[in-house]
Lab assay of single mutants.
Amino acid sequence: MATGGRRGAAAAPLLVAVAALLLGAAGHLYPGEVCPGMDIRNNLTRLHELENCSVIEGHLQILLMFKTRPEDFRDLSFPKLIMITDYLLLFRVYGLESLKDLFPNLTVIRGSRLFFNYALVIFEMVHLKELGLYNLMNITRGSVRIEKNNELCYLATIDWSRILDSVEDNYIVLNKDDNEECGDICPGTAKGKTNCPATVINGQFVERCWTHSHCQKVCPTICKSHGCTAEGLCCHSECLGNCSQPDDPTKCVACRNFYLDGRCVETCPPPYYHFQDWRCVNFSFCQDLHHKCKNSRRQGCHQYVIHNNKCIPECPSGYTMNSSNLLCTPCLGPCPKVCHLLEGEKTIDSVTSAQELRGCTVINGSLIINIRGGNNLAAELEANLGLIEEISGYLKIRRSYALVSLSFFRKLRLIRGETLEIGNYSFYALDNQNLRQLWDWSKHNLTITQGKLFFHYNPKLCLSEIHKMEEVSGTKGRQERNDIALKTNGDQASCENELLKFSYIRTSFDKI
């Protein structure tokens, strides 16, 4: 039985969820670079991206490699990797027998973001014989899940209580170790020597080791999670996991709180800001991140802002960003909400898709409305799209047979046209069989910064309504002859009103 693990408890099935942008060198404390989270699957090609990484700022997932063999891993080693800020997950990587050479110096898994409450997941690794993470000293947050690894031993010899604050939620089941077939031998045991430290858990006094050649490092209890030197002297209180010299914040392997210019500090002093819960960055760093993602459509890219001495992905609820200094300031009234469309555009074809934009005031991208039916549609669209004030790209209304009016965009005031449909149009209306009105132009103002209007096959939309939009939106004169079809717009509506004058002759039985 794995020490510190839980057996036999019912657990939810383990679901495996399925960018080499360097964020800056980590400095003297770390020998390499800070790398983003990685999802490495199918083959070993991307694994080489770990070569210079000291910190993975995010998670590391290595999974679904069915053609790899043990010899493929023999020359692979990433000794610079010290810390993973989120979680480490391995799933069905064939041929991998140990992690001792792959990650010989991995010391800390912070667990800032977890995989279903777990910071370390080893699942269905069919050839893994031992973990071998002999320098792993601290899992700051989260638990361990090690399950269905039929060859995995050296679990009962690990004292997880020396690595985690609590072992109650560890789930370590259905491994070879369960069948008591392992016969784990710690260093020196074969020669009758006791080389590794022994600890007591559940009444068992057991030597602690990761492999037959690597003991588990056990520091004096007084050192807590700070770690200790090879001689057993406690590291500085700002260290986490390990250090090369005692009581020196510049000799830590990793930091308990924050890293700044080669030393570990309790908090980031001005003019620095907390970033990702582990390091200090200056304003320029946060500003660069903001600008890199301002026009990016890459998933996970955030326009970072500053709030409460932190550089964070977005302002919290009730705050909006001051564009001059990136500071989050309290909103006066309802907060603006910028919604970034991942692929640059979004099609609204149902109430469900409209709900995804609920509360958005600025759309960074283009909207395509293609709704053919739905219950209580006008009210639903207004509830979900009615706060949109600005669209950076274009607005396209296409084959939306259920629409009679666009009044559900009740606050839309600006279409920038930074991206144009077919390279020309910022407003595009095609084949809307029941569209009769755009907006009530006596109450609604709309500016279209650039781009043209396109109207074709809107049989109940009168040309007068379209011409009014040209005047109000500032697009009059931009359109070419064929942009607004004269014969297919309003051709099934009563669009022309003329005053009919009647004269009559009164007659009676005795007068003409």
Rank of each mutant, 00 (worst) to 15 (best):
H28C: 14
L29M: 12
Y30R: 03
Y30T: 06
Y30A: 14
G32V: 13
V34P: 10
C35Y: 00
P36G: 15
P36V: 06
G37I: 02
R41Q: 04
N43F: 08
N43W: 13
N43L: 07
N43H: 10
L44I: 10
R46M: 10
R46A: 15
E49T: 10
E49D: 06
L50A: 11
E51L: 08
C53E: 00
V55S: 02
V55L: 06
I56Q: 00
I56P: 00
H59T: 13
L60R: 00
M65H: 10
M65G: 02
K67I: 03
T68P: 09
R69E: 06
R69P: 05
R69M: 06
P70C: 08
E71F: 05
D72C: 13
F73I: 11
F73A: 14
R74K: 09
D75G: 03
D75S: 10
D75C: 04
L76Q: 04
L76H: 05
L76K: 14
S77L: 07
S77H: 08
S77W: 10
S77K: 04
F78K: 02
F78C: 08
P79K: 03
P79Q: 08
I82G: 08
I82E: 10
I82Y: 15
M83L: 11
M83V: 05
I84V: 10
I84P: 00
T85R: 13
T85N: 04
T85Q: 15
T85H: 07
D86I: 02
L88I: 02
L89P: 00
L89S: 04
L89G: 00
L90Y: 02
L90S: 02
F91Y: 06
F91L: 02
F91I: 01
Y94P: 13
L96C: 04
L96R: 00
E97Q: 10
E97V: 14
E97G: 13
S98C: 06
S98A: 11
L99Y: 02
L99F: 05
L99H: 01
F103L: 05
F103T: 02
P104H: 01
N105S: 10
L106S: 00
I109E: 00
I109K: 02
R110A: 10
R110C: 13
R110D: 02
R110T: 12
G111I: 00
G111A: 04
G111W: 02
S112G: 09
R113T: 11
F115C: 02
F115W: 15
F116N: 03
F116I: 01
F116S: 01
N117I: 07
Y118V: 15
A119Y: 00
A119F: 01
V121I: 10
V121E: 00
V121L: 02
I122T: 05
I122Q: 01
F123N: 02
E124Q: 11
E124A: 03
K129N: 06
K129P: 00
E130Y: 14
N135D: 06
M137G: 09
N138R: 15
T140W: 06
T140N: 07
S143K: 08
S143V: 12
S143C: 14
V144K: 00
V144Q: 01
I146V: 15
I146M: 07
E147Q: 03
N150D: 08
E151T: 01
L152C: 05
L152G: 01
Y154L: 03
L155M: 07
L155P: 01
L155I: 09
A156M: 11
T157E: 02
I158C: 01
W160L: 05
W160T: 00
S161L: 13
S161K: 03
S161M: 15
S161D: 01
R162Y: 09
I163G: 00
L164G: 14
L164T: 13
D165P: 05
D165G: 07
S166F: 10
D169C: 05
D169A: 12
N170C: 10
N170G: 05
N170L: 08
V173I: 00
V173P: 04
L174I: 12
N175R: 06
K176G: 15
K176A: 15
D177I: 07
D177H: 11
E180R: 11
C182D: 00
G183C: 07
D184Y: 09
D184R: 15
I185R: 07
P187Q: 05
T189A: 08
T189M: 02
T189P: 07
K191N: 15
G192H: 05
G192M: 07
T194K: 09
C196R: 03
C196W: 01
C196L: 03
P197G: 15
P197A: 11
P197K: 10
A198S: 11
A198F: 12
A198H: 06
T199E: 08
I201A: 07
N202T: 04
G203N: 14
G203L: 12
G203F: 11
G203P: 04
Q204S: 06
F205I: 03
V206P: 04
E207P: 03
R208F: 13
R208V: 00
C209N: 01
T211M: 14
T211Q: 01
H212S: 13
S213E: 09
C215Q: 00
Q216F: 03
Q216H: 03
Q216R: 03
C219K: 01
I222Q: 11
K224R: 06
K224E: 10
S225T: 12
S225F: 12
H226K: 11
H226P: 12
H226C: 15
T229N: 13
L233G: 11
C235W: 01
C235F: 01
H236Y: 05
C239V: 02
L240F: 06
C243Y: 01
Q245A: 11
Q245F: 14
D247S: 13
D248C: 06
D248A: 06
D248N: 05
P249H: 04
P249V: 04
T250M: 07
T250Q: 10
K251A: 01
C252K: 01
C252D: 01
V253P: 04
A254S: 11
A254I: 03
C255N: 01
C255Y: 01
C255G: 00
R256S: 08
F258L: 13
F258V: 13
F258C: 10
D261T: 07
D261N: 09
G262D: 02
R263H: 10
V265D: 03
V265G: 07
V265I: 13
P269H: 12
P269Y: 15
P269T: 08
P270L: 10
P270W: 13
P270H: 08
Y272A: 06
F275V: 05
F275L: 07
Q276F: 14
Q276D: 12
W278P: 01
W278H: 05
R279Q: 06
F283E: 07
F285R: 02
F285S: 06
F285V: 07
D288G: 14
D288F: 15
D288A: 14
D288L: 14
L289Y: 14
H290L: 06
C293P: 01
N295Q: 08
S296H: 13
R297V: 07
R298Y: 12
Q299S: 09
Q299G: 14
G300S: 13
G300P: 11
C301L: 10
H302K: 15
H302I: 14
V305F: 10
I306D: 15
I306N: 02
I306V: 14
H307F: 05
N308E: 08
N308T: 06
N309I: 06
N309S: 08
N309E: 05
C311F: 03
P313T: 15
S317I: 08
G318H: 13
G318E: 06
Y319S: 15
M321W: 15
M321V: 08
M321Q: 14
N322Q: 10
N322K: 01
S323I: 05
S324R: 13
S324A: 04
N325G: 14
L326Q: 14
L327T: 09
L327W: 14
L327M: 13
C331G: 02
L332M: 14
L332G: 14
G333T: 07
C335Q: 03
C335V: 03
P336D: 14
